[in-house]
């Protein structure tokens, strides 16, 4: 029975190797030609060269943000699918992205970004996300108990309301503003502010650490809420905290990188097919694979129509969706 630990270790090593390869690839490709083999030399010996600046100032921050956002989004997907026991739930189902997008649209349409400057859009996105989370949470508590089913419905409804609100704003605003809104919604890892990148990375890593305090409740919840309680788990408390962790992670990601779709839905499913449902390996595996997936998608988005750039969400959607269908179809044939 104990060889499952060895299996987990092998999976983990494999995924980390994969992440390493993807990071290298992403450092290598791009508008500016840098040979793969010269990268160590540039990093160590040529610290005043253009190549060094391109690698450390442009590509590395993007990769770091990609790992953080991809990891956090797939982790949020894993946690939400775990507490709702519903494979269709993803970080954006609960209207968090809609709320963030509405917040950003308001700022753009009313020209508020001049007030604080660069930080205004992420801040507006984060506030929008938080307002949504609090609304969903408060509206779902009845008689001191969190009603999971109505929570999902309320989230979906809030999502509709905020997208209607956004369409209303777009209908009354100038085409220039509409362009900014759409550009933001499509999502991008192009973030010039290093502080924001570091903050996101730290929050993302903390999210993973804190989630590991809940592997036991998550594993017990695989049997259902009632049976988890029979095993001595305080499900009410665990579900509330996990919901808050997942929403915070999603809110931060959306605020910084916009709405990058598909990661939080597809990666948990793919990883589950590979490593199984035990959250001790499932959490970290999804985090690493999700991060690598976004970094790879971003590298493709940067290069496929160079010198122009595609929104990373286009690539995550196409690759993620296709890969998922292929894997699922293959799996159902096998059975």
């Amino acid at each position: 029975m104990k060889n499952k630990y060895i299996k987990w270790l092998l999976f983990l090593i494999g995924f980390i190797l994969l992440a390493f390869v993807v990071v290298l690839y992403s450092l290598w490709v791009g508008e500016f030609d840098i040979s793969l083999l010269s990268i160590p030399d540039i990093l160590i010996n040529k610290q005043d060269s253009v190549e060094y600046t391109v690698i450390t100032q442009i590509r590395l921050p993007r990769i770091l943000l990609g790992l953080a956002v991809g990891g956090a989004l797939s982790l949020a997907g894993v946690l939400l699918q775990g507490i709702y026991r519903n494979p269709l739930v993803e970080p954006y189902t609960l209207g968090i992205s809609g709320g963030a997008a509405l917040g950003v649209s308001i700022v753009i349409v009313f020209g508020l970004q001049q007030i604080i400057g660069l930080f205004m859009l992420p801040l507006a996105g984060f506030i929008g996300a938080m307002v949504t989370i609090i609304l969903v949470y408060v509206l779902s508590v009845k008689k001191g108990r969190l009603k999971m089913q109505s929570m999902l419905l309320i989230g979906v409804m809030i999502s509709f309301i905020s997208s209607s609100g956004m369409m209303f704003l777009m209908a009354i605003s100038s085409s220039e503003n509409i362009h900014s809104i759409i550009f933001w919604i499509m999502g991008s890892l192009d973030e010039p502010n290093m502080t924001l990148i570091y903050t996101t990375s730290i929050i993302s890593a903390l999210g993973l650490l804190v989630s590991y305090m809940f592997v036991q409740p998550l594993n017990a919840l695989r049997l259902g809420e009632e049976k988890a309680r029979h095993l001595g788990i305080n499900t009410e408390w665990a579900i509330r905290l996990l919901f808050i962790i997942a929403s915070l992670l999603t809110g931060v990601c959306v605020a910084v990188a916009g709405v990058i779709g598909f990661v939080g839905l597809v990666i948990p499913h793919l990883v589950r097919l590979l490593v199984g449902n035990d959250y001790r390996i499932f959490l970290i595996a999804s985090f690493v694979v999700g991060g690598s997936f976004i970094v790879l998608s971003d590298a493709i988005a940067r290069t496929v129509i160079a010198p122009n750039e595609l929104p990373v969400g286009v690539i995550t959607g196409i690759i993620g969706g296709t890969l998922f269908i292929v894997v699922l179809a293959k799996n159902s044939f096998k059975r």
Partner: peptide
Amino acid sequence: EDILVCDYVLLGRI
């Protein structure tokens, strides 16, 4: 659920 019987029984140690 998609859980191995031995893993299921081990949950009893929680």
